[in-house]
């Protein structure tokens, strides 16, 4: 099987040479992407990017993810089925790195290259990780927060969870930037609402009631950010709110002014780069250990800029 693939690779490389690099000479690679979610708009944007790369590079891509980000075992079933399909490469966003180790080892043994995406996998099996630099992205949110509240006062963070890589990195990125660069700003509270809008709303209200002089809150993912904005509206507060990611609801809140602005990742880019990296790996090209897919700050004024609009999703 391995020899067959190498042989096919050699033949297609030869074909590429003789055809002068014509894209039509490429092998139709089968790439299976196993994501952390499916219905959520963020994951659909990742899927859109993967589909775009698939169309451009002439490969076949499938995209699957469990119904909720708690269903670790269901994700394992998906990964196992994908392995049985014997794809040319696998893209994987782990819900729990450790649980996935046996199956990733199986992929390695079968000679199937693995590309990690989104929050990465604590393992040396993936050849590279296509992800947002969440620490830097959250630090940018801290800079914008400082600017909007005038460089002093109390702020808080409502994040999704304290276990996932994104949760840890975004909280650390925000809190550390404030500590290092803004001595007059104090982070009075960091709370976790599981990325659930309603729970994040309740948390926000309790933070606001406990700290009447609070100046701003950073919501560290889509659900948290919407929850923070809802909490602000329900209590009639006028704090600064900075969100994360996009989605129709959050974009609406930024347009209406409830939310001052948000950091957006580039989910389309994450999907695109994952597939592009898989194709590179299959062609035997060298890959950097991390592919930074980028992030931007946007607000009502910049939302329609072509550069921003391209990475926002509904």
């Amino acid at each position: 099987m391995l020899t067959r693939r190498t042989l096919l690779g050699a033949i297609s490389a030869l074909a590429l040479l003789t055809a002068g690099g014509a894209a039509s000479a490429q092998e139709n690679y089968d790439i299976a992407l196993i994501s952390k979610g499916f219905q959520h708009q963020f994951w659909q944007a990742v899927k859109a990017g993967a589909d775009k790369a698939a169309a451009e590079l002439g490969v076949t891509v499938t995209f699957e993810g469990p119904e909720s980000e708690t269903q670790v075992d269901r994700q394992m079933d998906m990964l196992a089925a994908a392995l049985s399909r014997n794809p040319d490469a696998i893209g994987f966003a782990a819900l729990d790195s450790q649980a996935a180790t046996p199956l990733l080892q199986q992929a390695k043994d079968a000679g199937i290259p693995v590309i990690a995406f989104d929050s990465g996998v604590d393992s040396d099996i993936p050849l590279t990780t296509a992800t947002t630099d969440n620490v830097a992205a959250a630090a940018l949110a801290a800079d914008k927060m400082a600017e909007l509240i005038g460089g002093e006062g109390k702020v808080a963070v409502v994040a999704h969870d304290q276990t996932s890589r994104t949760g840890i990195d975004r909280v650390d990125g925000f809190v550390n930037r404030i500590k290092e660069n803004y001595p007059n700003i104090e982070v009075v509270s960091v709370q976790y609402g599981g990325g659930d809008q309603l729970q994040s709303t309740e948390i926000t209200k309790s933070i606001l009631l406990a700290n009447p002089d609070l100046k701003g809150i950073f919501g560290a993912n889509e659900g948290s950010a919407i929850g923070v904005a809802n909490g602000k509206t329900e209590l009639g507060s006028n704090i600064v709110v900075i969100g994360f990611d996009s989605g129709a609801a959050q974009k609406g809140m930024i347009t209406s002014g409830v939310m001052n602005g948000a950091i957006t990742q580039n989910p389309v880019g994450i999907g695109y780069e994952t597939v592009a990296a898989a194709v590179k790996a299959l062609k035997g090209e060298k890959l950097e250990p991390v592919i930074d897919t980028g992030f931007y700050y946007y607000d009502a004024a910049t939302m329609a800029d072509p550069e921003i609009a391209a990475v926002l999703y509904d």
Binding site: E67, S68, T70, Q71, V72, D73, M76, D96, Q98, A99, T101, G194
Partner: peptide, 16 residues
């Protein structure tokens, strides 16, 4: 079985 398979007890899983 599930804890052994995931080598962890995942507290948020189960509903559904």
């Amino acid at each position: 079985l599930i804890a052994s398979r995931l080598n962890s007890a995942q507290p948020a899983l189960g509903q559904g």
